[in-house]
Design a protein around this nucleic acid. Sequence first.
DNA 1: TCTGGGGTCCTAGGACCC
DNA 2: TCTGGGGTCCTAGGACCC
Length: 420
Amino acid sequence: VNLGLVDCNAFYCSCERLFQPLLKTKPVVVLSNNDGCAVSRSEEAKALGVKMGEPYFKFKHLCQSHDLKVFSSNFSLYTDLSWRVMEWLRAYAPSIEVYSIDEAFLDVTGITELVVFGQRLRQELLRQVGIPVGIGFGPTKVLAKAANRLAKKSLKSQGVVDLTQTKWHQAGLSRLPIEDVWGIGRAQSQKMRLLGIKTAWDLREYKNEKLIEKIFTKIGWQIQQELRGERCFPFQKPAEAKKEIMCSRTFGTSVEDKVALKEAVAHYVTSAAEKLRQQGSVCQEVTVFARTNPFRQELPQYTFYETRRLPHPTLDTFKLITVAQQLVDQGYREGYEYKKAGVRLSDFYQSTELQLDFLTPTDTPERHELMKVIDRYHQKEGKGILKSAACGVKDKAWRMNRQHKSPRYTTDWNELKVFY
DNA sequence: TCTGGGGTCCTAGGACCC
DNA sequence: TCTGGGGTCCTAGGACCC
């Protein structure tokens, strides 16, 4: 078995560039929600020194001095283009596992001349969808990831690296710093370095497996095995239903008012419950949290988390909003400027199982129907048209800032790109 | 004051990913 | 002035049971 990992280059930036070709050679950054910090950077932006996760206000000056272009995040656009990329991958490989919005593993077992195959795939994606990608091949996920990382680093590779054959492992892996190995983050790589493990190759060759497992847990041991070509992380994990669903946002302007906080929470419950129903689940636990701005230490700080277990599982948005608002009442303290709030739904069951069980009192069938109607309506006419009055009707100070948002070119008729 | 052994389940917290 | 959001997995430790 051999795997490929396809990874879109600076995906969000590439999506924005697709509709503004003049930006192809300019530094581009896409910002997180609320225009908070950098989450995607073009090569040119990286060269200017913009760091991943760096707050916008720290590099804003580059817009003036170096013609840096910034965008607010536009997830309808990114999700749609991601879907197009995945469709093309499905056409090229017998099976794929979509790993994230911009990455997928491919089963490439039996394909010879992988580098040629990879090059063709890259060109095809560029031509058909317009998104540049890098590709790595290997016998395990960790090795395919490593190959992909090497492909990004080396110009010579032209975006494709093949580590399926053991004979190339030493050359490749010894050029890969340990912190670039998939699954080894900051904390673990520091510990690795104390053991003298500086590269992926060092970890592969480290003899004391027991010690690796002791310090880095089962996962650390599995990563070492995968570097040696022993498969631990299976391909095509079926996409399982989520075990919890969260929805939270940082506010555009902080709020002190309990009513405003409740409105925001009602919004988050609404979209979390929609996701809950979409995966066919019901939930029996709700958590609400809110916090002040930790970056403003001169202000009084306060965070609350309140969790409630429900008497019966539910998928009813209105029921969940009621509970969530009670939780706000419990946790809320006056005199703080709340900057972020959120909701977590957890303790899930299958909604179908539940309906068959007449002994478990749960939502009424009428409520299920109502939710279906709302979901269908939103699917057809757009999200957020029907909502509980608890979400509020007036202007919302807490709404996200998004000053640099591009149009939804591919998912909204009114925002189609027009070329003159 | 002294106080077994083994098992399960749950939760909190840490680490990681994109 | 301005600092994202949404997940998963693992482990340790406590509660509880017999």
